[in-house]
Each structure stands twice: as structure tokens, then as C-alpha cells.
Design a protein around this nucleic acid. Sequence first.
DNA 1: GGTAGACCTGGACGC
DNA 2: GCGTCCAGGTCTACC
Length: 340
Amino acid sequence: MGTRLSISPPDDFLLWRDVCSYGYFLLWPNFWDPRAGTFTRVMNLCEGPARVTISQGKPAGCARRVRGAVGEPGRDFDAIKPGTALMCVFDRVLTGGEKKEVKAQISRMLRLDEDAAHVAAFHEVDPRWMSTGRARLFRSPSFFEDVLKTVTSCNVTWPGTLSMNRRLCEVVGKGGGFPEARVLARQRPALLRSRCRVGYRDARIVELARLFVAGKKGGVDIEWFEDPATSDDDIHKALIDLPGIGPYAAANIMQLLGRYSRLPLDTESVRHGRAVLGFKGSSAQVMKRVHAHFAPFGENAFRSYWFEMWVHYEKKAGPAHTWERDTTGRVFTAANMNKK
DNA sequence: GGTAGACCTGGACGC
DNA sequence: GCGTCCAGGTCTACC
């Protein structure tokens, strides 16, 4: 039997809402089970990979069924009290050091550092999300994984992003986890291209991994990037200097770092600007208007923008916590949903 | 500073 | 089953 850990989240935390809040929850090695209401993935720890399943509240009974799960008992999500402890069950015994390590990783992934006061500050700026409590955005257990996931989401359709992440985990990752920087740094770009189907991103991914391995010695200094004292402008400039990172990717990585003032605008944003906000004109003009539209939200511009778009997705595809990674999760983007 | 074209993959579509 | 077209953000060359 493996280790079991209990983690106390902020008072308003809901696993199903706060995990299923950003598209990365659908990317390997992440797996959300909409029927059980549990989140599973392999974590990279100092003694090796360990699979964890995180749940909140009592396990699935025979309560209200989740939409789409015909014929199977579903989880009664409404019955889960916000702030209920998270139960983390591992497939092996963890050392004392690993327990500390994994708590920090889970806290990063679920944004447990964003407490109720932090959430309230966002809702004061944008009260539209107060009733549902939306504020936290799911991310990865590590900065490196967030950067790689962003690179694999550029210049490719969403199913391509899913495929690249799955293959990276299967081919390079240890035990089905996301590949670590030190392992990726040793790979030949040609292998990533042929077996992980990352295309022209191959050399950029290896170069990025090498920069993360180099760390403070002329590479990516993670502590500097995650230090609240570092200015947004400095972070943005440093990100743009990294291989494979342009304006969109840099802004997206910034929100993953908890800096929500910049908008990673892409073709989805243009579609949103046209379809939901009613903006007209060229793509460049629509993007400008989207920027201007969310500018009043200041430090929280991205969250206001994102939840507006996320709600639009959910109107089309159902609540995100009912999405299956291999079905709804493949087609949830506006590019697909706006097709007639 | 702005613009055009190449970079790759996978899905859609027509034959 | 095959060929063609298209979507997607970054990078480089060029004006």
C-alpha cells in the first residue's frame, strides 16, 4: 500500500472547479475522471516517479449522475463543501523528503497559494465570477512543464497539442510522467520529431531543456522567474529571449506564473472577439479591441478574459468537469465549436 | 518597424 | 486510399 497524504486547501477551494479551469488539465500526464471526480497523474520526485490520485470529499456514490456518463453512477459535485481536505493517494511509499516535495508540486499545480483573500480581490475587480467562485487556473507542478506545454500549443491545433504531450510522456517521460528537463536535454532532436511528432519544435525543445538544466549558470533561473519581486517587464523580456517563445507564448507563461496583466491573444481570441463581443474588422483590429476591452481589469485582465471564454466553451460543450480527455477534451476549442 | 514566407503535423475534404 | 488544402504562433529575411 502506498502513502496517503491529506492536504488542507483554501476555504473556498473546489477540486472539480479549480482543476477543470484551464485546458492543460486535459494534457498528458494529467487525467481528470469526470465520473469519480478525481485527478490522477504521475509526479516526478527525487526517488523516481509516483502516481497520485487526488480526491475531495467522499468517493463517488450513486448520487446525481454527471452529464454524459450514461449508465454509470456519477459524483454529486454539488454536495462537496468548498475547502474540504484533499486526499492524495500514491501508488508507492514516499520518503519524508518526497512528501515535502510533492506537497509543493501539488500546491503549485492547484494554486493553493492563492487563498480566499486573493480570490476575493479578483472578484472585487470582476464580480461576474463571485457566484461560481472561479478564480484559480490550473497549471503544471513545475515551471518547466508549463513552458513546454505552452510551446507544444503554439502553431498547432488542439488535438496536435494533446498528441505531442501524450507522446512526450510515453516516449521520454519516466513511468508515464512528463519528461524532466535533464532527460530532454540529452535527447536528439530527430527522436523528438520522429517519435513525439513535435515537428520543427524539436531543436527548440532540447535547447529549452538545456537552458533549464543550466539554471543560474547562464540558463533559466527558475527562482528569479517565480520571485514576485521580479517585474512583469523583466519576466516578459526574458521569456521572449527563450527559443520558441514569442509574444503569445510569453504572455501565456506569465499567467501561468500568476501574473495576469497581459493577454496571450491568438486566433481563439479573435474568434471570441467576433462571436461573443461582436467586434468587427481585420484580425489585428479585433485583437486591438479585445486588448482594450479587458484593459480596465488591470492586473486581472487575463482571468476576466479567460473565464469569459471558458464559459463560452462550457455553453457549447457542457461543464468542463464533465469533459472526457479523449472525447469532449479533443474538440472543446472555439475553432471546432463554431463549425456549423 | 512592418510584412511575407517557411516551418510541421494532423484533420477535413474531394476524387 | 490518395492527394490537396488549411489552421496554428514563431522565426528570419527583406524592405
